[in-house]
Write a protein that binds this DNA or RNA. Structure first.
Length: 419
DNA sequence: TCTGGGGTCCTAGGACCC
DNA sequence: TCTGGGGTCCTAGGACCC
């Protein structure tokens, strides 16, 4: 059996932990630059605010209903996510962190009344973190996902649902929209709709050859999983990323080459930090920048440059300047750049690295140590404590008007209790 | 005026080999 | 008019996830 623990409206719930007066009130959390609503409390959903709605399009609803608005506070969400994880590990040693707000548990070998177990996991998360968590338990990951969605739909389940008898599964699938099944995206829903396939049950009953032909291997796996046959691996140990990307939209268009280079330098620095954290070297890097695609009446540019590192690289002093050079090369005057980013690909483990016959070992070792020093200074004193001149202030060009404090990750922001 | 960011997997088709 | 057969590797693009 697998459990899926899914935090309800995660970012919104995190904000509410430290603002309990907002319980029962509509709240939304915004994307970068305060652009779109990427998380909504149930009350905000009920007001008809769609996922991903641009703030300027929902301003009237927000004002009329006093919706509390927050800029994204990722240090807070990351920390709350780690706390949830710690709770989950008490219920199974095998936890797969699937995303910031979801984790699968492998319950193999655990003897328990799984319905009570699901409810207990949810109750414990609530007690220890004040985050509401929906826990579904079922024979496959896809069915566990469905079970956890049922918890959100039916409060009487008290956050936990165990679904395993074929007749129960059939009953649920017959009412469950195929569009809400994990792995069935918008494109597939369109096709399925034309075929008259509306529910998860309809999908499970399709002939396998049809599914294989129209939805390929992933679609077939989903079908098997709906039939109760596990097909999607449980990944206990987190895999190394195959690519690492840092990109942002800017609050204003950038027309100036040095200013664009400054942003790119900051993205490159952040990429290297992530790359080093997972202990990888990059063989390739791409730097890209483009104009505002929503302004259709202005000239559009979509530029990128690729840089190769034949030896593999994870050195700030190699990667950051290379990114800046690539940015200077791709820059074209007269365009207003709205978004840029840096992505490293073809990553390899630094420990598996074989040095080149012609490399200067002493110099390489010195450089590696220097990057390590940069890492430790920034870990101790905060991001950007030490940085390249070309990074400017180290701040990216963005708007965050509704930022909440970093309650759990910054000393100055820790809530004070008055006695 | 204002429109997110970061990933993975799979497949078809092209390039190339003998 | 006729124009081999069988295979691998790589990449771009599609689809999906949160």
């Amino acid at each position: 059996m697998y459990a899926l623990a899914d935090c309800n409206n995660f970012y919104a719930s995190c904000e509410r932990v430290f603002r309990p007066e907002l319980n029962g009130k509509p709240i939304i959390v915004l994307s970068n630059n305060d652009g779109c609503a990427v998380a909504r409390s149930n009350e905000a959903k009920a007001l008809g605010i769609p996922m991903g709605a641009p703030l300027f399009k929902i301003r009237e609803i927000v004002q009329a209903n006093h919706v509390a608005v927050f800029s994204g506070n990722y240090p807070l969400y990351g920390d709350m996510s780690a706390r949830i994880q710690a709770v989950l590990r008490e219920f199974s040693p095998l936890v797969e962190q699937y995303s910031i707000d979801e984790a699968f548990l492998d319950l193999t070998g655990i003897k328990a009344d799984f319905d009570a177990y699901a409810k207990a996991i949810s109750a414990r998360c609530w007690r220890d973190t004040s985050i509401p968590v929906s826990v579904g338990i079922a024979p496959t990951k896809t069915l566990a996902k469905i079970a956890s969605k049922l918890c959100k739909q039916y409060p009487k389940l008290q956050g936990g649902c165990y679904m395993h008898r074929p007749q129960d599964i059939e009953k649920v699938l017959r009412k469950f929209p195929v569009a809400d099944v994990w792995g069935i995206g918008r494109r597939s829903v369109k096709k399925l709709d034309l075929m008259g396939v509306k529910t998860a049950w309809d999908y499970a009953q399709l002939p396998e050859e049809t599914v294989r032909k129209l939805f390929a291997l992933p679609g077939w796996r989903t079908q098997q999983e709906l039939r109760g046959i596990p097909c999607i691996e449980f990944e206990d140990l987190p895999q190394d990323r195959q690519s690492i990307c840092v990109s942002r939209s800017f609050s204003h268009e950038i027309k100036d080459s040095p200013l664009l280079a400054e942003q790119v330098a900051n993205f490159a620095e952040a990429v290297v930090e992530k790359l080093r954290k997972q202990g990888s070297l990059a063989l390739e890097m791409a730097v890209f920048a483009f104009t505002n695609r929503f302004k259709e009446d202005t000239p559009q540019a979509h530029e990128s440059r690729v840089v190769e590192f034949p030896e593999g690289e994870a050195d700030y002093r190699k990667i950051v300047p290379a990114a800046v050079r690539a940015c200077q090369e791709l820059y074209r005057p007269g365009y207003g750049y709205k978004k840029a980013g840096v992505v490293v690909t073809r990553l390899m483990s630094a420990s598996a690295f074989t040095a080149s016959l012609f490399a200067d070992d002493a110099a390489a070792q010195r450089d590696a140590q220097l990057s390590g020093v940069i890492d430790s200074i920034n870990r101790s004193f905060g991001p950007g404590a030490i940085r390249f001149g070309v990074q400017g202030s180290g701040e990216v060009y963005s708007t965050r008007e509704h930022q909440s404090p970093h309650y759990t990750t910054r000393w100055e922001d820790i809530p004070k209790v008055k006695l």
